[in-house]
């Protein structure tokens, strides 16, 4: 059971969906563009996978169901744990056979707003991404043909798929669509920063306010961590060290063989960043203070450093202010219900 800042209860999934629809607001695109830090409206949804409570409910069952893995022991939630900021609290993930993987589990908070997916951008849509870890030998190690047979043998899933996707059956495609539908409901909620930005001057302290000024000014964080979701969906080599037990990871270069992509990884969201330690694609830092120190140094490995990186010469107070700002991006606690899985 997940018992942490997230309380566990069972409630109607429709309520969750409605909360999501209202939490993301109805701000139009023009307003969001004028004020990039104002919460965005609903994220784009593919025309062939519009959101319905049945689809979200099915996706949630699949997300929490370990039978999706080859071992029937690992679910999506094993790594994307709601009690750990939709990540796993580990430097790098643990995959099939309890083997340590080379990259950290990214949070899936606000993943619906991303324009490209995975640390190296190898998935173009949430639907494309959804079954990637299931099929990956090192992660959930599942043969999709076997998975489809397994789910077809569970009467409860047959009914749920038919209700969510009438006439489409249980296929790799409908599994992906359902998972994506659920993941689109995992969104950030009203943080102290949002309340301050909306006009409540008492929502954050002075250190946080100074931190935001630094974030968008001297520290240049917003060059990459831009907009309300604090990401440019871009790829940057930020000069991280490779620890002794780590193999070299070329990141985005595997997808686009261009020099600047060597060692570059996707800019993650900073929403709820205080809940998602350790940090960086290789989990090298345990605290936000260490992260800020890294950027203050202008990175450590300069071989193919992103040209936007340079030493910042921050004072101790400025570093503390930046951390205070980052902590102000923590959402209000939300209720995450654990579904009863079909038998």
């Amino acid at each position: 059971m997940y018992i942490n800042r997230y309380l566990i209860c069972r409630s109607a999934l429709t309520t969750l969906l409605l909360c999501w629809l209202f939490s993301v607001g109805t701000v139009d695109a023009a307003a969001s563009k004028a004020d990039p830090y104002r919460p965005a409206g609903m994220a784009p949804i593919p025309a062939d996978n519009t959101a319905t409570p049945a689809r979200v409910e099915l996706g949630k069952m699949l997300f929490f169901d370990p039978r999706l893995s080859g071992s029937q022991w690992i679910s999506c939630a094993s790594c994307h744990n709601p009690a750990l900021g939709w990540s796993d609290g580990l430097p790098t993930a643990i995959g099939a056979g309890m083997k340590k993987l080379p990259r950290a589990t990214p949070t899936i908070l606000n993943v619906a707003y991303n324009t490209i997916f995975m640390w190296d951008g190898r998935a173009a849509s949430l639907e494309d991404q959804a079954t990637g870890p299931i099929k990956a030998k090192a992660e959930m190690d599942q043969d999709m043909t076997i998975l489809v047979e397994r789910l077809n043998a569970i009467p409860g899933y047959g009914k749920a798929f038919e209700h969510a996707y009438p006439g489409e059956g249980i296929t790799e495609k409908t599994i992906a669509k359902a998972l994506a539908s659920y993941e689109r409901t995992i969104v950030s909620t009203n943080s102290p920063f949002d309340r301050w930005h909306a006009g409540n001057k008492k929502a954050v302290d002075d250190s946080t306010k100074r931190g935001f000024e630094l974030f968008t000014g001297k520290a240049k964080c917003s060059v990459c961590h831009e907009g309300f979701n604090f990401t440019d969906n871009g790829f940057h080599n930020i000069g991280l060290k490779t620890l002794k037990d780590m193999a070299e990871d070329v990141g985005r270069f595997n997808q686009r063989k261009v020099k600047i992509n060597h060692g570059a990884f996707k800019t993650p969201t900073l929403r709820d960043v205080a809940l998602t330690a350790p940090y960086m694609h290789n989990g090298i830092y345990q605290t936000l203070e260490e992260v800020v120190d890294h950027y203050d140094r202008g990175g450590d490995v300069k071989d193919n450093l992103d040209p936007n990186m340079e030493p910042l010469n921050l004072t101790l107070q400025e570093k503390q202010d930046l951390v205070a700002f980052l902590k102000s991006l923590t959402s209000q606690p939300v209720l995450v219900t654990i579904p009863q899985l079909p038998r």
């Binding site: 324009t115 490209i116 951008g121 440019d232 871009g234 790829f235 686009r256 600047i260 570059a264 992103d306």
Partner: peptide
């Protein structure tokens, strides 16, 4: 043609 940094 693309930008290697900004994939969109």
């Amino acid at each position: 043609v693309e930008c290697a940094i900004h994939s969109q």
